[in-house]
Computed example of a mutant assay.
Amino acid sequence: MSGTLGALSGIALGPAAARAAASTPRTQGWQAVPAPGSTPAAQLRRIAAAGPALAWAVGEEGLGTSSPARALAMVWNGSAWSKTDLSPLAYPGRLTDVAGVCADAAWSVGSPTGGASPLLRWDGTTWREAAFPGRGEPDVRLSAVAVGADRRVWVTGTRDGSNRLLHRDGRQWQWLDPLPAPGVNLYRVVLRTPDEVWVCGDQAAGGGWTGFVARWNGSWTVLPPLTGLRQTIADVHAVAADDVWAVGNEFGVGGPPGRPGNPILRHWDGTAWNQVDAGFPLGSLSSIAGDAQGRPAWISAWNHQDQTRSTYLRHDAGTWTVVRGPAGPAPAPYVNDLARIPGTSGYWSSGMTRAVPYPPTEAYTERFDA
């Protein structure tokens, strides 16, 4: 399922793979930015920016050791990343998502620990637990969060056995209607407009799972499933109801032990999902971000065949082009997420210094400056 990380090897490459490996992608504009202070192994799963002088990144640290992993959070002050003190929180587990538009409108969610999922709010200095309907109930799980420019908050979660959206209108929280689809895991919630929300993940099907995308605009619309088996859609970007991009990975049927998946890049044209070439055959696509006009701009990726630098896809004149990150302190960087920096033409990405979550892997970020 989604979130499984690891170095994968021992693959026999066919002619298509050889052609992809022989190509020379561009290197363009990305630079490594130190994210010090985490305890190996550590990774940053999600990143969000309010502007050039404020950003947040969350994940986990202390992986692969005898002690349980701990939540990790960092904040950018315009010149450096610093680790946020989470010791006042009773919550020890990993943080799975973060979103924010200003210093007093930033939120994070985490994986369940002790039978409950935390919802955190940034108070300008650190993260504090926030109350919400269902907090502490054993069947309530929160998975992803988005915040609009109007400061309204949208959270994906489960309650009473159903996937739902938890919405905050600025004054109070409300659980919305159940998602009319069984067996779904949701990993992202994305805003297109203040009242149009997209979610994605995977859905149990035929002994495996298939990619899942749906829209909420007062009621649910579930898009047709993507063709394939053992798929996960990691992120979605909607330009319009008939112009939607989905990224993720697919493992298909069988294969040798340790086989990496194939990247998924699909486009919904209002009628069908169309497959688009990702530029390499083995690996995954983890996140997609738009530009200031809402057009698709960047995708973060992991190319199994060349792990010496981070991998991105850039959208230019209707075509996706492979772009490589910087050569630097990360020996084999793995990027989990990326986000646009409002007020600029720049982007952040976050992940870890190697593709395996074991020491000495550390938290890692890169920034794109046009």
Rank of each mutant, 00 (worst) to 15 (best):
A205T: 14
E129G: 06
V335Y: 00
S111M: 13
L176S: 04
H304K: 15
A106R: 05
T126S: 10
L223I: 08
G206P: 01
Q172W: 04
A234Q: 09
T24L: 07
H167R: 14
G258E: 11
G115T: 04
N274W: 04
P360L: 14
G3V: 12
N303Y: 08
T125Y: 14
G279L: 12
G62L: 08
S66D: 15
A234L: 09
Q43V: 11
G208P: 00
G6N: 12
A71G: 15
N274P: 00
R168I: 03
G14K: 11
V147G: 01
S23W: 04
D306G: 04
L166A: 13
L72F: 05
A301S: 14
T96H: 09
A332I: 00
L338I: 10
P326Y: 01
A246R: 02
P118L: 03
G136K: 10
V33L: 10
A131M: 14
A18C: 05
V323P: 00
G346Y: 05
D195P: 07
P281V: 05
R141I: 08
P331G: 08
N163W: 02
T311I: 07
R215V: 06
T344K: 13
H237N: 11
V145M: 00
V190Q: 09
G318C: 03
G6K: 12
P342D: 13
T156E: 01
A301Y: 03
V98P: 01
L63W: 05
D202Y: 15
W209D: 00
A106G: 13
G207Q: 08
A146E: 01
G134L: 07
A146C: 04
S2K: 07
W216S: 03
P92T: 10
P329T: 09
P260V: 07
A80N: 11
V239S: 02
L229T: 15
